[in-house]
Design a protein around this nucleic acid. Structure first.
Lengths: 206, 206
DNA sequence: ATAAATAGTGAACCATCATTCAGTTCTTCT
DNA sequence: AGAAGAACTGAATGATGGTTCACTATTTAT
């Protein structure tokens, strides 16, 4: 059974999360979180050292949740290139389905301290893409390249391409077209399939 | 001759710009700008309605300056694909040569109101890339695609790939490799050169 | 030279919120 | 029940830093 302490923590985090998801970051002051959670302002500081810590945890858990979905997509059967496509589709679909939250997590202007956090939470996405690209390279599906730089560019590109649409109301047909454009863009960006080595060496795994 | 009024404006903007370029946005308070410009805090409000307006102008002029350099690169002779490559090289070289400023303009966490500005000032880059891509499409060099989405993804990708290096001290050899990686990445992302149309239609210009 | 207008000063002000803490209510244990 | 402690309250506090404004200095016009 969940301890009272943990229940309160979760309630506060949930309130913060709901506020972000409904109205964006700008609507979330500590008193607002308290009101939504049905507790006093002061109590929040019994559970979190500061607002920044609270948001750090909020961002972390939201990011982990998204990352898990993307990792699941990455585990689908298929070539590395195909799986990269699945991950992008998953990421983009989920972002477009929860626009306000995605906007807040990815791009909404926030106070300085929290912005730093946000930058940090892009790293897991970069790592996921970098790992898939490296796999593709080792399998001979993708030409050798600096997977860290390319992964960063992909994440930045996907987010930037989504930011405009994220802040506008949904337009049904366009969504699939947008995602398709982004997926093709990334697929192309990985370059063409390399010729098998003249030495006939088999692709290797580390 | 520059009017006294314009001279003062320019002096204040210059002071702000130098502070940003030397120490990043976090070092720039209104009193700090005043001190650097050798004027009083209050005077700044005779020339600018608010700090946000001052920075809006600062960002605008800095962005215009950069955009001009990129547009010059885009006017070099060459195919659309080649010229896109020149623009990326120009942009990246200049950013890496003035790291602190570039970091402040592109990614440093800033207060909410100013962040909104920053988002706006990415649009000119998107437009420049979009125009070049469209040219390439019309010339049959690039397969038809949504140039606005692709341009956004390129800009986002270039910036994201630079952000890490921008916040670290220069490492000489790496810089060219990094830029080369980004350029190839974008070149690939445009897709392969399309087959000439079966109907033998000539590429068209609007 | 004197007045009117304009430019400039900087200490005080204020708005915003995160944060605190003295006091109260609720639990738990004997 | 009663005491000890933990949980909780919310109005007051405080830090930051942008903004104002009553006042002084300088320039321009008569």
């Amino acid at each position: 059974m969940e301890s009272r302490l943990a229940e309160r923590r979760a309630r506060i985090l949930g309130a913060a999360r709901n506020l972000v998801a409904e109205a964006g970051y700008s609507a979330v002051s500590v008193p607002a979180i308290a009101k939504r959670a049905g507790v006093s302002t002061g109590l929040i500081y019994n559970y979190f050292d500061s607002k920044a810590v609270l948001f750090d945890e909020l961002f972390r858990s939201a990011t982990e949740h998204e990352i898990e979905a993307c990792e699941a997509a990455a585990r689908q059967p298929g070539s590395a290139r195909e799986r990269i496509g699945y991950v992008i589709e998953t990421f983009a679909h989920r972002a477009l389905a929860a626009r306000q939250l995605a906007w807040a997590l990815l791009a909404e202007p926030v106070e300085t301290e929290i912005e730093q956090d946000r930058l940090r939470f892009r790293a897991p996405y970069r790592r996921l893409f970098a790992a898939l690209i490296r796999e593709g390279i080792n399998d001979g599906e993708i030409a050798d390249q600096d997977e860290d730089v390319v992964a960063a560019a992909m994440v930045g590109g996907i987010v930037e391409a989504l930011i405009g649409p994220l802040s506008e109301p949904p337009e049904v047909g366009d969504e699939d077209r947008l995602i398709h454009t982004i997926v093709s863009y990334c697929a192309n960006a990985l370059g063409s399939i390399p010729e098998p080595s003249e030495l006939g060496m088999a692709p290797y795994h580390d």
